[in-house]
Nucleic acid binder design. Structure first.
Lengths: 135, 135
DNA sequence: CTTTTGTTGAATAGATATGTTTAACAGCAC
DNA sequence: GTGCTGTTAAACATATCTATTCAACAAAAG
């Protein structure tokens, strides 16, 4: 269906069956192989999908004038300051207010936040119009 | 900045320089190689980006065949009914029994459930075979 | 306690990708 | 024509990926 992808036929087969909730043993039996192999195939599929997403994020980040990386450990409430400072350096006026910016961050990075703490690095793109995007 | 992607360092270097409009000859000279090699590197980069997009399209096409969104606040025990109703509308017979469906949901969404209450929106895909998938 | 289920590490052979060079070719500007 | 531009094909060594097996392990289900 899709020309050329980073998933092999085997990986896709296993990935779909696992998504449907089939056990490793069942899949292994039906494909004529072992549980550990099916496990490995699923893992490979997930890794390739992850890498595909990272690739697209990388490429799209090139479209932005600048990219800000907020290190883990940062306090949530320090993020708007970080972004405004960077935008100033570039002579760009951010479109969003501080509170809106916080709201936006929280909505798009809930998985990387806990109690005002940034748990994992957050990457944010700034374009020439002052729009910001979580990458 | 981005953990693991399908672009090599060399490919990315060339891709960015070409986006900036640098000629093959200039890049080749600065990287200490030939025009044809730079050309090949750019081509490889484009191919890998294309494949990354295709991979994501493939994966998402598996998910978005038909989708049910269970709003937060819903009672856990209402979910099977919601899914069966949606499947009926589509003329699809769900493969799982009500109790199995509940079990499946609980196993895959424990993070979004507390005491029969759905805390955060749950998105569930239904495919043509009546298999369901938590997205 | 025994079985099932998912994971991991190490090892393997075979396939594919990568970066490279060289030679050749077409289009365009001067 | 002489020089740029970008492209392509063939060939090659090296590196990485792929699918696979086997042995071992922990957690959960029976």
């Amino acid at each position: 269906m899709f020309n050329s992808t980073f998933l092999t036929e085997r990986q896709l087969e296993v990935y779909i069956r696992r998504k449907r909730g089939e056990s490793l043993a069942k899949i292994a039996k039906e494909l004529g192989t072992t549980r550990s192999n099916v496990c490995a195939l699923e893992k490979a599929a997930r890794r390739n999908i992850e890498r595909a997403y990272n690739t697209i994020k990388l490429v799209e980040s090139l479209l932005y004038k600048s990219v800000v990386t907020v290190p883990s450990g940062t306090d949530l409430y320090d993020i708007p300051g970080i972004i405004y400072r960077r935008a100033d350096e570039l002579g760009i006026k951010i479109q969003m207010s501080g509170p809106m910016l916080l709201k936006y961050i929280v909505e798009h990075c809930s998985d990387k936040l806990r109690n005002r703490q940034v748990l994992g690095e957050i990457t944010i793109g700034i374009d020439q119009n002052g729009s910001i995007v979580v990458l």
